[in-house]
Structure formats: C-alpha cells, structure tokens
Amino acid sequence: MLPFFDRVDGAAVNASVVSVRPGLSPGMGTGILAGLGAGAFWGMAFVAPLMAPNFSSVDITAGRYLACGLVSLLLMLWSGARRQRIWPTWRQAGAALWLSVLGYTGYYLLLSLAIQTTGATLPVLVIGTIPLWMMLLGKPEGLLWRKLVPGLLLTVMGMALMMHATASGLGAVGAGADLWLGVFYAGLAAASWVLFGLLNKRWLHQHPEVNSTMWANWMGVAAGLGAVPIWLWAGSPLQIMVDRDGFGTYVLVCGITGVGAAWVASVLWNMASRRLSASLAGQLIVSETVFGLLYGFVWNAHWPAAMQWLACVLFVAGILASIKAHR
C-alpha cells in the first residue's frame, strides 16, 4: 500500500492542510478533497473510448481492469513483503468481487457501450444524474430536506443548460434507435453505480479495520479477474488486437485509465466515503461530469459554448451549496 494513502487514511490530518473552507472539520475537508480528486480521475474514462476508436467497448473495459488488477496485485505483494496484511477473508473477497462488478467492470462496460453508440456528450449527462440520486437516497437522518434544495436545484439547472447547449451536437445521431440505445446503456450504468456507491459506503463503515488502499487493492484484483471472462466471452482475439491500427495507443489508454481512473480514483473515493455522508459524497460526483466534459472539449479541440461554461459554474455552485448544507 502506498505510504501517502496509508498516512492520510489512517490518521487525522492538520486542519490547516485539509480544510477547503473555514469551519470544516479535518476529516470533512479531507473527504471533500478526496471526492473531488476522484472525480478528476474518473473524468478520464469519458474520453478513453474516443482515443481508441478501433477497439470495442469490451476490449477497452477488459484492458482497463486487467491493468488495474495487475497494479493492485503488485501493490499487494509489495505490502506483503513489508509484512502487512494483504489477503482478504472469503467473505471479504466475495464482497469485493460483487461490488467490483457493480462499480467497475459492469459499470464501465455499459458506459463504454453508451459512448460508442452516441458519442461522449449524452452519456456524460446521463451519468451526471448520479449525484442527484445519491443525494436523494443517501441523505443523513438529521439533515433537513430544505437544506439540500439549493444544491439540488443548482445541479438540475446546470444539467438542463448543458443538455440544451449540446442538443445540436446530437443531430448526427438523431432520435432513432442508436440514440435511445445509448440512453438505455447510460441509464443502466448510472443505476449500477448508484447501487455501488451506497453499498460500498455501507461496507466501508461496517469494516473500519480495512483501510481505503487495502480495499482498493482487493477491488482492483477482483475487477481484473472479472475482466478475463468478459474478454474471453466477447472481446477480440489477442492477435487481431495486436495487428489492429492503434494498438499502442490502446495499451497506453488502458494503462492510464487502469491506474488513474480505476485504482487511484478508487482509493480517493473510499477515503471520501468514510468521511462524508452518502448525499455529500454523491454531490461531489458532479466533478466527474465537469472534468469529463472538459477533457472531451480538449480532445475535440474546441472551447465550450458560453452556456456550457455557465452549466459548469452551476455544477460547482451546487457542490459548494451542498457542502454548506452538510457543515
């Protein structure tokens, strides 16, 4: 396990370092920064299928999580060499496998199918509803609904503006079967991740003896194991992939997203889940949408329209309003 994550996850951090606004506790400040960091890494996943267009969604999903599983296994073995605990119990291994299907391989396979069906913009917006569902389903008992309303309204307004601003970009797809199939895949991906977010948070709170890095390693290995049958069942034969144009780019994309958008993001999200309520942690997922859109704009080499900039401002304002509500 990485010393930095061990230290941040296992001990209190000075408030002057982690507080993002006056009045936040050290744990809450760390959780907010970790959640935003996870969103920044997750946003990479929205451009990955566009960077390797000659490879199927199954190939990209399998490659990404094989890379994540390999990195996780190497880190576990390194921890074992330092005489640290590395292996889960059978029950813990089962939980890691089940949750990795919900939040890793299954989720990203559905997202990749949506992106390859309709392009990146529409799936990003559908996935952008995850914070709303997390806020609604994960509200702490003592928090009044009226305190969540400003953050919810700002997020909904941002989504409405973004959908309106990007509607013309969907003209090439139209309202035919491809569009609705992409919406279906993206909707299933969103539902899968909401369920993962709620169950993963509950599991972490029930098992404080398992730190965030250890759990990310177990989940990563489980995701790597789950990627193998997916690739064998529906992926391209290895030799065909090697001979295909862009194989080097494909390997690079899988490596970067496997480490950054899977392993690092998982550690950061686990840290956020331990320190924040599901509703506040869920609101921070809006940052994934913001980063995903920005990465997409950079990849397509054009600036966002004024309305898209305004939507991003509303997303950020929604995050700040939610943080204030949870203080």
Rank of each mutant, 00 (worst) to 15 (best):
L132N: 14
L136P: 02
A172T: 15
I240V: 15
K147F: 10
L125G: 08
V221F: 03
S192W: 03
M214C: 07
M159D: 07
V156Y: 01
T121F: 15
M157T: 10
M219Y: 06
L198F: 03
L225H: 07
W133E: 02
G169W: 01
P140F: 03
V228E: 01
G119H: 07
V156S: 11
A120F: 09
A189H: 08
A114H: 12
S168F: 02
G171P: 12
E209W: 05
T155W: 11
K147C: 01
W193D: 01
L110W: 08
Y107F: 13
P229A: 02
M134H: 04
G220L: 02
T155I: 01
V124N: 15
G128Q: 10
Y107V: 00
R202P: 01
T129A: 12
P140C: 10
L122Y: 08
G246H: 05
G103F: 00
V242W: 13
D178R: 13
L137N: 14
G174D: 02
L153V: 12
A165Q: 05
L199P: 00
T121A: 14
V156K: 08
I115F: 09
A190S: 10
V228M: 09
A216H: 01
E209N: 12
Q239G: 04
F196P: 04
K147D: 14
V101L: 15
W231D: 00
L154S: 04
